[in-house]
Amino acid sequence: MSTLDIYDPAQCCATGACSPDADDELAQFASSLEWLKQCGVAVSRYNLGHQPGAFAQNTMVKGTLEKDGIACLPLVIADGKIVSKGRYPTRGELGQQLGVAEQAGCAPAAPGAKRCCG
């Protein structure tokens, strides 16, 4: 089974409520994760503010943090490989990395999901 690990930055209310723009990017990303779960990917998500241990214990994450600083967050790791730093990948990118066709339709497509914005 494929695995996807997301290391999120510390944010005050990362529900989006406290971000400077009411930002549905986070929600879109969350819906992409739901889709991947339905497709059988094991998804884990860690927040620096509440699970700092997860960051300290993973040598790849810790090393990237030391090299790039917190700008590397969110850090997305698929099957042990870094997929993206400092941004949330699109559904297309995630599917490609994990070998899940975007048309796979494991679950109903989430409303408003963006395809790609390069």
Partner: peptide
């Protein structure tokens, strides 16, 4: 002692 200073600072600000 385990995480870089800017990561620790960002956790502190969140809290």
């Amino acid at each position: 002692s385990l995480l870089p200073a800017d990561a620790v600072a960002s956790i502190e600000e969140q809290l």
